[in-house]
Design a protein around this nucleic acid. Sequence first.
DNA 1: CTCTAAATTAAACAAGTGTTTAAATCAAAC
DNA 2: GTTTGATTTAAACACTTGTTTAATTTAGAG
Lengths: 209, 209
Amino acid sequence: MFSFAPSMDKREYIIHSAMALFAEKGFDNTSIREISNKAGVNVAMVSYYFGSKEKLFEAMIEQKSNFLKTKLEQLCKDETMSEMQKINKLISDYVTRILENPAYHRILHQQMLLNARPELNTMIKSLFCENTRYIRKIFEAGIAKGEFREVDIELTIISMFGTISQFLQRAYLFTDNQEEFNNSQYPEEIRIRLESHLQQMMQAHLLKN
Amino acid sequence: MFSFAPSMDKREYIIHSAMALFAEKGFDNTSIREISNKAGVNVAMVSYYFGSKEKLFEAMIEQKSNFLKTKLEQLCKDETMSEMQKINKLISDYVTRILENPAYHRILHQQMLLNARPELNTMIKSLFCENTRYIRKIFEAGIAKGEFREVDIELTIISMFGTISQFLQRAYLFTDNQEEFNNSQYPEEIRIRLESHLQQMMQAHLLKN
DNA sequence: CTCTAAATTAAACAAGTGTTTAAATCAAAC
DNA sequence: GTTTGATTTAAACACTTGTTTAATTTAGAG
């Protein structure tokens, strides 16, 4: 027997290469041969490890999810913070997380704008919905307490995520390195700028003055 | 000679079919055969009229642009409105326009998240940049006058467009008809809801209280 | 009618796709 | 050593892709 999973590194290589390529060129326009070349493995290894291109995609998503969820659960039941503080913390965490891994989030948003592969979409939708449920709770609590205005909760959440998603779309405005802006990480300065813009806008929108 | 362009209707059919299919399945995952089938013409007609699939895409974009621009120019130099009124008008016009033609805007945002076809991207980028320039002027004027807070202009614009783009991504939350939500038009009620959310949020964000 | 040029067609093209196969290689177990 | 099963490979598979070709139809002009 083996001490750990067998050639786990090759699986990792494949997922890693796929992520970069999907983010840049999209799922449909990335061939398995490109992925395997970039990963330095044979074409057949993708089918061998994952079964199919779609399954590879799903494996990629699964590996990356299950992170925000636990953070959100904790945040929700934290009683030491005001609801506004929770929203600020949420923004800070989320911005950090996305700017650390823009490729993954580009892929999610790409796929959400399509209706071609129902199974992938269902998967991503449920991922989004789950996160949204927790965030909605924070808003509801804030409104119930009278801390927040009676805003449109759905659309306020959409504005939050939309800002970040649109930032990824227009990332070219914020970096000189036009070739690598989509996958590489962003300088700290930009993270802070995005974070404080969102926090300020949300405060103005939510808090009764 | 002919009174007007030759079989302009077939060109139109092709563009119209392509738009619906691109919006649903994306550029890469839509074949010319699907487009021609849907349009009821022969496969070769796409090459005949447009030259290539990419050229068809470009023709589609060109046909739809050049609309917001003139509206923005007028809005910019209008001296009867406050800057906040201009922003409200802008939001109202833009929301209306997008919800009347969601497919087109889905395609734009899809393509913006990709880096596969540099020429298409350059085209769309410049389209966005041009519009952004005018909007920025309104914000700058508002700040200069002291009507607006000193907000981060780039990111505020991103929040505006991001909200609408994200709304298209999550349109399934706002309609029962799950199959046709992406291309069909939205009920008036939803338009108003999106419009007033954006206007309220922007007012809270921009105006000194 | 004839002539001409545009419009339309079915068929073919070469290239690329995701996936499978069957043989070869590897490494640990006995 | 041999055996066993997982890993890796090059080649082939069947299929779809965007585009072109060469033949046919259409329709307006002289």
